[in-house]
Design a protein around this nucleic acid. Structure first.
Lengths: 159, 159
DNA sequence: TATTGTTATACTCTATAACTATA
DNA sequence: TATAGTTATAGAGTATAACAATA
């Protein structure tokens, strides 16, 4: 069944993914604007929560962002009391990153916003269809070698 | 079944869409690099083909791009003999845009690249799953008010 | 006066590369 | 000498606004 119709379907799927991906990212950014966070900020909070004590280099690698960008992001989040930089006594070059209690609270709000965002985005589907869609997208993501939960493209790499 | 599990599924779908959308857009851009086209160029070719004789203003609106950007894109495509600007005798301010034969040929190559791209992106799915995915994504796109076939996000609006 | 297309300019962002402090 | 983090700078890309031609 790898006929011309299927080829067009595949192309249409790719187009829809690009279109919806842009839409989803823009809507999410809009939604966390009220928290005065950008998607990049949210990515930092999430990753520091998952890997407490990680260095800024590790963070840059996982986010796909430049170290210099990470400095600015962490500066901002630290200034607002959401993350802490702790010197590592064993290697004083490293900054171990941790969420403060306020940071944890903010992350809960981000997660809540993400759920509302997801519900709004997929409101045209019933729960069964939503589950099916998650499955199909997960298969593609795994096949394409995308890291689960890591950097949706907040980074502008461009090589 | 609108329970906490479903809420997490919805959030996961939104995340996957953003992640896969970025991936799909990047891969497509890579694929048409060999044609020395950017996604924005491809968008112009496609739209001029669909709406032959359209003005640059109309094009800018449909692409979600700035008029000044459209000028640069059309300049480049005209220089390469892919599109023509024809003065409209009725209103000499307007440039009616048309594809040349070379432009038509280039668009065929872009469409072929898009099919290969789609097949590669969705290779983890069988044709039935691919069709199902196209259906689910189409429902969301329609519900979210996205124009079919129009601007996947090549524009950087940001407002 | 309003609109199309164009050009010029200002601005934002990103990437690169220097610099410091530690190792 | 090499690495983490930081700062400064250059470059790319975008949006804004001025402009000429036509209506």
């Amino acid at each position: 069944m790898a006929d011309s119709t299927d080829g067009q379907t595949a192309a249409a799927v790719a187009f829809l993914l690009a279109q919806l991906g842009e839409h989803a990212a823009a809507k999410f950014a809009e939604r966390i604007e009220s928290l005065e966070l950008t998607p990049a900020h949210a990515g930092v909070l999430r990753l520091v929560s998952v890997r407490p004590g990680c260095s800024q280099q590790v963070l840059a690698g996982a986010l796909g962002a430049l170290p210099s960008k990470v400095v600015a992001l962490v500066d901002e989040l630290q200034r607002r009391g959401l993350v802490e930089r702790r010197r590592n006594p064993a290697d004083r070059r490293l900054h171990a990153l941790h969420l403060t209690d306020e940071g944890e609270e903010m992350l809960r709000r981000v997660r809540s916003a993400a759920e509302t965002h997801g519900a709004e985005l997929t409101r045209a589907l019933d729960p069964e269809q939503r589950g099916h869609l998650a499955d199909l997208l997960g298969r593609i993501a795994a096949d394409q070698g995308l890291q689960p939960g890591v950097h949706p493209g907040y980074q502008r790499l461009r090589r």
